[in-house]
Design a protein around this nucleic acid. Structure first.
Length: 775
DNA sequence: TCGAACATATGGTAATGGCA
DNA sequence: TGCCATTACCATATGTTCGA
């Protein structure tokens, strides 16, 4: 009630002042007249409001505070938004604030801004007169003012004395100049608005700059009260802003970390020349932040968060969203009709326009034909179509967005286009674009500055077999265990030689692999109905036989029969193939709820990790984001990622995938995003156990493989033909497939027959379990 | 009876590759 | 490097079957 009448008085003060715009007049009649006019209802109000003390306070506040436009705006805005519950409702409060700031306008602006910001964010409840006037644990104003001091020191002497990239410095100063710029450029008050703000400029930043940004935000601009206790302690001990930052946890550790990162970055630049064959580890550290470099443990934060009643889950979500908004950009292709339309959508994101010269790695433009689209019929067997017009549109758009021209006949140094060809033989669809590459004659490509390389990626035979269910095993060399990968890049691009991440050899060789293709059932799956929405026009009719593409004119039926007869094993009914429908024949039409892999021919993430490592990737523009697993990997490793999805549905799907991964990464000590204060203790524990289990499994597997090899050798020596007949193997296998987690195997010994991959065995096991469960 | 949803055949276009 | 037969891709046409 008190605040209500105070507010009214105050409002009258400035309405009067604003209309008159003459302070002298306000002193005299005007104020009294106003009071008389409006005070008819309540005599008590009238009496209190006309008290000389109150009027004096009003006039003081008006003079010292409200004559200044920015200050007045904040107070008026607060009042407009929150009416009586505004934190500034109360003339004495404002007076007290003036006193605290010693009438300094910029201090007042900061204080009002901070208060209003926190109030809007819902993390400031008690901002009463008593709170302002007395020191204590709930005192906010002094804390805010101390935070201002800290901010000034950080943006001034701290930045000046650090060897940060100048571009980052100026951006930091721009963003943290005021509350306004902070909410407009980085962190809006309303969470939904975050989408409208492009913060992807962070993605090009070195870790030191990112940590500085984090420090600035948490120390001076944060809306939650995480480190308020520390600041209060500093105030109590009479510390200045600088001392507070340099002497108190967690700021002290953050600054140390920033300095360590700066040192490392400098060293990396100096060592860059030295990065030659063999030393994969230091190179990796350049681009991918050291997992152990995650934020230092701050249990006090957690306690305080709990004490404040903040919901950890929502905090975690908000944090994950922040990370994603910094590193992930998605656009859908289908709803942008022209290359120009798509380009202007892409142009909005800094991440697309990133300058390769300022990066500590290369910009990789990835295209995986396996994930371009999907054959309408028999997608598991037919290769995905490539729609040249859409492809051209996408590349033209990237060109337009990045350099203003749709052509790709010249590339910037540092740009690398990687294309995995998906097992096709005509490789000219991209060569045409660059004017260089397979399918373009030497004469035509003469004079171009673009170079290209061909790398063969290989897959383990077992994993290929597990996917190609209908292939006759008799057909010679029909099971393709390799795909070609092409790299196009400007001659000036720096691609240091380094060891492959997941396979033997270095990127000086033209071979990469072998990788293990996941079985159908391990791929991310979605309902069939959703798939149609997801792919949109990328679902296209693809001609050709469904057998397997081999020229042998015997059909699938023959193959199947033959296989069933000969081996009794590799057969659709036994390998759990996702339901693909089979027309109106013997089977039913697919229900929209039937689960299918989102992308049938998706490559394992390890392949792309290897490719990104081999090309020293710092940023990724993905033309075929597929199920979003590469996106998730990139975000979890703090690499910028731009995904050009097919449709809006596709975008949403990828976003969901990345969100899940990021949330998991927050609780995973092995991840670069690990945040101890936000970690879900249960998941954290599980993650630790999982790593341990995997290590043990690996050991066991190695031992088993050795044993199997030994046994096979023995069998061979005996001259026994154990290769063809193997109906027995259904009962074998320990189903210890990594990742699938079906630990229901009977734990049988590794049989001497054939030696199926653990993944295949797991699939068989699963299928068997399903049969027994349903039947 | 007709449309939906699939399978399958066909032919135009462009790339490929052998050869001179 | 140019010619030309062959091959690959894939849009389109046609066929098949079910259920409303």
């Amino acid at each position: 009630m008190i605040s209500a009448w105070l507010r009214r008085v105050r409002k009258e003060v400035y309405t009067g002042a604003l209309s008159a715009d003459d302070v002298a007049a306000l002193y005299g009649k005007n104020l009294i007249q106003v009071n008389r006019r409006s005070g008819g209802g309540n005599s008590q109000d009238d009496k209190d409001r006309t008290k000389p003390g109150t009027i004096k306070a009003c006039i003081q506040v008006y003079e010292r505070m409200l004559t200044h436009e920015p200050l007045r705006r904040i107070v008026l805005n607060a009042e407009q938004d929150f009416l009586d519950s505004s934190p500034f409702a109360g003339v004495y409060k404002l007076q007290e604030m003036c006193r605290l700031c010693k009438d300094n306008v910029s201090k007042l602006e900061w204080l009002l801004g901070a208060t209003y910001h926190r109030f809007r964010a819902g993390t400031l409840h008690d901002f009463s007169m008593r709170n302002l006037a007395t020191a204590g644990t709930k005192q906010h104003a002094l804390v805010f003012l101390k935070q201002r001091e800290m901010k000034l020191w950080l943006l001034g002497p701290f930045l000046d004395s650090r060897n940060l990239v100048s571009e980052c410095k100026s951006k930091l100063r721009e963003v943290f100049a005021s509350r306004d710029s902070f909410t407009k450029l980085l962190r809006p008050v309303e969470e939904e608005e975050q989408e409208n703000i492009d913060v992807s400029w962070q993605a090009t930043w070195p870790k030191s700059a990112l940590l500085t940004l984090e420090l600035l935000e948490t120390s001076a601009f944060s809306v939650d009260a995480t480190d308020e206790g520390t600041v209060r302690l500093g105030i109590k001990n009479g510390k200045s802003g600088q001392e507070l930052l340099e002497e108190y946890s967690p700021f002290k550790e953050k600054i140390q970390e920033i300095d360590a990162c700066l040192k490392e970055e400098l060293k990396a630049i100096n060592d860059a020349a030295k990065s030659q064959a063999g030393d994969a580890e230091p190179d990796q550290a350049q681009n991918i932040p050291n997992p152990s470099g995650a934020a230092p443990s701050r249990t006090s934060d957690l306690d305080e968060a709990m004490a404040e009643g903040m919901d950890l889950e929502s905090k975690r979500l908000a944090y994950a969203r922040r990370i994603m908004s910094s590193y992930l950009v998605l656009e859908s292709e289908e709803d942008k009709k022209t290359a120009g339309g798509l380009a202007s959508a892409l142009k909005k994101h800094k991440l697309v326009q990133v300058e390769t010269a300022s990066m500590s790695g290369n910009l990789i433009i990835v295209m995986d034909v396996n994930g371009w689209g999907e054959a309408i019929t028999a997608p598991h067997i037919r290769r995905p179509p490539i729609q040249q017009t859409i492809l051209n549109k996408v590349f033209e758009a990237i060109g337009l967005a990045r350099r203003g021209s749709s052509g790709w006949k010249t590339m910037a140094p540092g740009e690398i286009v990687i294309c995995l060809i998906g097992g096709r033989t005509n490789n000219s669809f991209l060569s045409k674009l660059f004017g260089v590459g397979p399918g373009v004659g030497r004469s035509k490509s003469r004079g171009s500055n673009i170079m290209w390389r061909e790398i063969t990626t290989t897959f383990t035979p077992e994993s290929v077999q597990a996917r190609r269910v209908r292939t006759s095993r008799k057909a010679l060399a029909s099971l393709k265990c390799s795909q070609k990968m092409f790299w196009w890049f400007d001659a000036g691009t720096d691609i240091p030689v380094k060891s492959h991440k997941h396979c033997q050899g270095t990127n000086a060789f033209d071979l990469m692999g072998p990788f293990t293709l996941e079985p159908w059932k391990s791929l991310p799956s979605i309902p069939y109905g959703d798939k149609k929405l997801l792919w949109g026009k990328r679902r296209a009719a693809v001609g050709g036989k469904t057998t397997t593409g081999e020229t042998d004119d015997e059909g699938a039926a023959y193959d199947k029969d033959e296989i069933a007869e000969e081996t009794g094993a590799v057969d659709e009914e036994e390998i759990e193939l996702p339901d693909v429908g089979s027309g109106r024949g013997s089977h039913k039409t697919l229900a929209p709820t039937v689960l299918q892999p989102a992308v049938y021919h998706e490559m394992p993430v390890t392949l792309w990790e290897s490719a990104m490592h081999a090309t020293s990737a710092a940023h990724i523009i993905d033309v075929t984001p597929g199920s979003g697993r590469l996106a998730a990997w990139a975000v979890c490793n703090r690499l910028g990622y731009v995904g050009i999805a097919c449709t809006q549905h596709h975008m949403e799907y990828i976003e969901k995938t990345v969100m899940t991964e990021v949330l998991a990464a927050l609780s995973n000590p092995g991840s670069g995003l690990y945040a101890p204060t936000l970690a879900d203790k249960n998941i954290e524990q599980k993650a630790k156990e999982e790593t341990k289990r995997k290590e043990e499994e690996e050991k066991k597997k190695k031992a088993e493989a050795a044993a199997a090899a030994k046994k096979r050798k023995e069998n061979e020596n005996q001259g026994g033909q154990t290769e063809t007949k193997k109906p027995k193997k259904k009962d074998e296998g320990s189903a210890a497939a990594a990742g699938t987690g079906t630990g229901t195997g009977a734990g049988g010994s590794q049989g001497g027959a054939g030696g199926l991959s653990p993944a295949l065995q797991a699939m068989l096991e699963k299928a068997k379990n399903k049969d027994t469960a349903s039947g």
